[in-house]
Amino acid sequence: MQERYITCILCPQGCNLKVQIDDGKIVSVKNNGCEKGPGYANDEVFHPTRVLTTTVRIRKAKLPLLPVRTQKPIPKGKIFEAMKVLAGIEVEAPVTVGQVIYSNILNTGVDVIATRNMN
């Protein structure tokens, strides 16, 4: 039996989850303030993911950068690789919030979207 403490990052509450793992499975999660805790603990132990927020270059806009994010969390281990992909792309204004800037990044099935309008 293995015991781990994991801070849940799903909301600002930041619950300190007490997770018990036995035989490659989570057998109990305690200290969770809401029903999302056990699911987060499972993801965090076996396949941690994060939403990536960054910028890409933009032409013909008032600013040189357009803020973007992955529409859903992607595997934590692919974050730096995703940064490299996005460093290589450049878009052109106008762009609207929610517009897909790069689809299916690193075959994760997740799109990268613009997070603001840029004229």
Partner: peptide, 12 residues
């Protein structure tokens, strides 16, 4: 700072 930020910005 918020605990979630210590985890996802530093610990990660």
């Amino acid at each position: 700072g918020l605990k979630r930020n210590i985890v996802q910005c530093l610990d990660d």
